[in-house]
Design a binder for these strands. Structure first.
Length: 434
DNA sequence: GCGATCAGCT
DNA sequence: CACAGCTGATCGC
């Protein structure tokens, strides 16, 4: 795609249309209430949150992109001065409230910008998102994939957010009489807090600005800003430290701290006040089974000499390596570019996934999808025919599976394609092998 | 004084 | 190494 037309999460002058994937600060550097550079495209929920995040923002510049629908956009090529027609679509990125990916199509090709995303294996949201994506690509190659490569390295393996949420509920219920403090940011982890609130039938305290966000998101029933009605508090991550917790421990009674973190191995044991599980220990637990892991740390108490317990639970809003791998295996882009720049070269998507990119791979995906749809059409016809030849359902299913194996993709993935075609159902029994 | 940018911390 | 993001220092207008 030619430069000087569309910017995604970049706010320098010189673009004709600006797209925002989500409202985290590392994607909005350069945005402010004084924004005047041009129309800003974002999801409906993000648009709702913008005046809160950027007071004074001129909302007449907002262009709401309805998720799942095609939108059209006519821009001017800076080089040829001719008109370029775009269509684009937003897809739920499941990273934080309002977060989306953008798929752009124009005459010169297709581009997908994932923004930050977490598409968990075997989740309905991921299946739906992938079905929308593949359907939108149709028989076109994906020319450029701008990828959330935060955890684009096999060492990054962690459980789903649901598993992590269950772990946190278990930690809280195992301390029935303690005050609980959970570290969160200004946006994100609402699904975790809702899960806790519903599982324990208890409101969660948040600070007043955060309660306003919860109101905008429609979650206000599960949250409160009154300190007296609950023992569970969500506090800003930057004020989550031994000092704060020890003070709570001293003045409000026994307190445990829970840090849901994307990289717990990085936080533990930095100073003398915390003693954490080592990174190798955390990783060892993760690698042995994908049921999740958490580490327990004990902070040294304040004047009272009490001990504050810290729990770091592996909770991530970014896809882990195996989820990124599944994503790329299905999309097969011609080019791939990481959106996370890092001094560390170990997350360069080309290093691990270069073999899944290139023109041949992109064409292979298109051909595979067409073959698969054709097969599913035939399979459905076969399914509604009466069985007259003595062939059992089991052997039919086996035949189908053989065909899928021929394609080299797993059954759970083919079920995504199944949704795309004529509603043919494929039984999905296999979990992802690692 | 205000906004942008960066170091530092968690 | 570094998730997301606040605070505070510095620079330029």
């Amino acid at each position: 795609m030619e430069s000087g037309m569309i910017s995604v999460d970049r706010w320098a002058a010189g673009s004709q249309a600006y797209f925002l994937t989500h409202l985290h600060a590392d994607h909005t550097a350069g945005l402010s209430g004084a924004w005047r550079r041009g129309p800003l495209f974002c999801s409906r929920l993000t648009a709702k949150l913008i005046p809160c995040k950027f007071p004074g923002f001129d909302v007449s510049l907002l262009r709401i992109v309805k998720i799942g629908s095609w939108h059209s956009l006519s821009l001017t090529s800076p080089s040829s001065r001719s008109s370029v027609e775009f269509v684009f679509k937003a897809i739920d990125a499941q990273h934080c409230p309002g977060s989306v990916m953008y798929l752009f199509r124009c005459e010169s090709g297709c581009t997908l910008h994932t923004g930050d995303f977490r598409w968990e294996s075997n989740s309905l949201g991921t299946e739906n998102g992938m079905a929308v994506l593949l359907d939108a690509l149709k028989d076109q190659t994906l020319d450029t994939l701008y990828l959330d490569n935060t955890y684009c390295n096999p060492q990054y393996s962690f459980p789903s957010r649901e598993v992590a949420s269950k772990q946190i509920v278990d930690i809280i219920t195992s301390h029935p009489n303690d005050e609980v403090v959970i570290a969160i940011d200004s946006l994100g982890k609402e699904d975790l807090l809702l899960y806790i609130s519903q599982a324990l039938n208890m409101k969660i305290w948040v600070w007043p600005e955060r309660l306003q966000i919860m109101h905008l998101l429609g979650f206000h029933e599960n949250f409160t800003a009154q300190t007296s009605v609950t023992r569970i508090r969500a506090i800003p991550r930057y004020s989550f430290k031994t000092d704060t917790l020890n003070k709570l421990n001293e003045f409000r009674g026994p307190t445990i701290g829970i840090m849901p973190s994307g990289m717990p191995w990085a936080v533990a044991g930095k100073d003398g006040n915390t003693v954490g599980a080592s990174a190798s220990h955390v990783n060892e637990k993760e690698c042995s089974e994908n049921t999740g892991s958490f580490s327990e740390m004990h902070g040294v108490g304040g004047n009272s000499g009490n001990t504050t317990k810290f729990y770091e639970v592996h909770y991530s809003a970014h896809s882990c390596y195996s989820e990124i791998q599944e994503f790329i295996e299905l999309l097969r882009p011609v080019n791939i570019k990481g959106i996370v720049s890092s001094r560390s070269c170990c997350i360069n998507p080309h290093y691990y996934f270069g073999h899944l990119c290139g023109p041949e791979q992109a064409l292979w995906r298109v051909q595979q999808k067409l073959d698969c749809e054709e097969h599913l059409r035939r399979a459905e016809v076969a399914e509604i025919e009466p069985i007259v030849d003595g062939v059992s359902h089991v052997s039919r299913r086996k035949r189908k599976n053989d065909h899928m194996n021929f394609f080299g993709i797993r059954i759970s993935r083919v079920s995504l394609l199944g949704r795309l075609s004529c509603g043919a159902r494929i039984t999905s029994t296999e979990s992802c092998s690692k």
